[in-house]
Amino acid sequence: MSVLIYAENSKGKLKKSSFEAASYAYSVASMLNTDAYAISIGEVSNEELEKLAKYGIKKILTVNTAQMHNFVNQAYASVIAEAAKSLSSNVVVLSATFSGKALAPRLAVKLQAAYVDGAISLPTNDGAFTVRKGAFSGKAFADVSMSAVNKIIAINPNSFPIAENSQPAVVEAFAPTVKDTDFRTIVKEIIQAADKVSLPEAEIVVSAGRGLKGPENWGMIEELADLLGAATACSKPVSDAHWRPHSEHVGQTGIAVSPNLYIAIGISGAIQHLAGVSSSKVIVVINKDPEAPFFKAADYGIVGDAFDVVPKLIEAVKEFKATHA
């Protein structure tokens, strides 16, 4: 018995969410009196992989062949299943990123495992192995008891603090056999804005809605986001009108986010919007209408015109940063 994490990387660097998964797996392993291991797939240096030792991972398997450099969910699921078998891992932990969510169900079928997607709690230690996840688009929680012997948990980014539990670790090359038919999909191109904070993983999100009147007014939103190291987001009508790309649309039919801080500017707070943001830890609303429904779902608010308040907020943050550098 052991706990295995899939340590996801982006361009050779382990993602922050992989360290969250490691910290989570260490807690689960401690509960089960066993060890936590990792599998990495892709072009990642051993030195980078050794960082996982700091979060309690004892052994790291790495698959770094050219064939595996691009993400193909079918092939990656085969590799992780082989790793789980060779390490006798009956619990696999990964992060509920776009790639994590695309491969975990395939892994669940391979391992005949129970699978909880988007977990927000550790499993209970009562034999039922119950894990909490969000349901009904943020309007409820579901507690899922994982009865199968093998278990797979995809944890929500930003739901678990990274915790240090340093110990020595070894990195070993792993050479599983993967069948040719696992590679029917071919990645032709990866288009990624280089210096942008990724929305699902962001700790702070600055989001704006139709109250901003038009795409030409997003300069101040981006400036505020840059200052805070935040990702930018928007409401659905804004992306429908092509003021902003669809990849920024949050809510029931867009991306669900759970940052530490969500700042909503000129957004009314419709139930479908709230569905994607209500699990944010702290919500700030800036809206000129004191009756806007979003104020009922917020921790802090400013009633005022965005074109007046946001520039002032930018100045206030600059001042704050100057004194707290």
Binding site: A108, Q112, A113, A114, Y115, V116, A128, T130, A135, G138, K139, A140, F141, A142, D143, V144, S145, M146, S147, A148, S278, S279, I283, V285, F295, K296, A297, A298, D299, Y300, G301
Partner: peptide, 17 residues
């Protein structure tokens, strides 16, 4: 393989400041 044993609604946020 698994069962939902309970649903729960999140607690509302307090009064906005």
């Amino acid at each position: 393989l698994q069962n939902i044993i309970k649903f729960e609604k999140p607690e509302g946020r307090g009064q906005v400041k």
